[in-house]
Design a protein around this nucleic acid. Sequence first.
DNA 1: CAATTCTGGTTGCATGATGCAACCATTCAT
DNA 2: ATGAATGGTTGCATCATGCAACCAGAATTG
Lengths: 148, 148
Amino acid sequence: MRHKSFKANLCPVARSLDTIGEWWSLLIVRDALFGIRRFSDFQKSLGLAKNVLSARLKKLVACGIMEQVPASDGSAYQEYALTQKGRELLPVLVALREWGESYLFSRGEKRLQVLDKRTRKPLRRLEVQNAKGEILTANDLELVTVTN
Amino acid sequence: MRHKSFKANLCPVARSLDTIGEWWSLLIVRDALFGIRRFSDFQKSLGLAKNVLSARLKKLVACGIMEQVPASDGSAYQEYALTQKGRELLPVLVALREWGESYLFSRGEKRLQVLDKRTRKPLRRLEVQNAKGEILTANDLELVTVTN
DNA sequence: CAATTCTGGTTGCATGATGCAACCATTCAT
DNA sequence: ATGAATGGTTGCATCATGCAACCAGAATTG
């Protein structure tokens, strides 16, 4: 059943999910952020069906999140690289990672963690803040309709 | 076709998506963060099929993201409220919102924006930072396997 | 109090999404 | 030249989603 479209939705969350909310899309972006570029490498890393991978990559290219570029090894193949639009999904992936780390692993359970490459230290935790840097919860927020 | 399970995945992103990556789940959490509690209000706000809403709410309760509580108006009905685990999805929703605001609306197009209720000002933008507060890109990150 | 409406679901079914496996054309390596 | 690697496409079965109808209990209205 075709998903309901949020393309015309006033809410940016809904529009984001319309673009990257399908099963597998964010995992493809995650892998691309960590350097995967080849069709077969995405397929091997994720273990998804090639027909679905093909469809997802096509959509990510069509949405401007990824682009196809000549292979970096000089061969005749093409690779998939994130655009700036795609790279700016990093906070989404990091937020998902932090929530998952906090709540979806048992103590002592093996997991993949992200570190700052240079310092080998964990990242500072993402916090929702106001303009002055005060940490906010959902209760501190309101929704308004704007046209900027 | 049943989605591949990421329950045993070492990556927290994959585990998060296993829990909240189904179509509609994050929009339900978004609405709950902004105060919706009743089955019919979720259904009206989102416009999704009642059978899917019912299944999603059941899963969110089973995963400990939401709980069923007596209705706040004293009637015999139940409401759905986010747990702390659910409320801590706020940065995920804010990150999705920011990306969507940046890339999925045309200039001048009407949209819903989140403001700090007290100051009426937009939020500070989420940034991926290291422990010292330096802003990082994906190129500055590495993945390691840990057991903490 | 009875009738009607509201609420929170459950059920049946059709369409599209995902998973699996096979197939195929081009490119690369030996 | 041959076989392997690469990047897909295709066919089909199983599940996910959307739609609409149905239903039981609670609440509201006259």
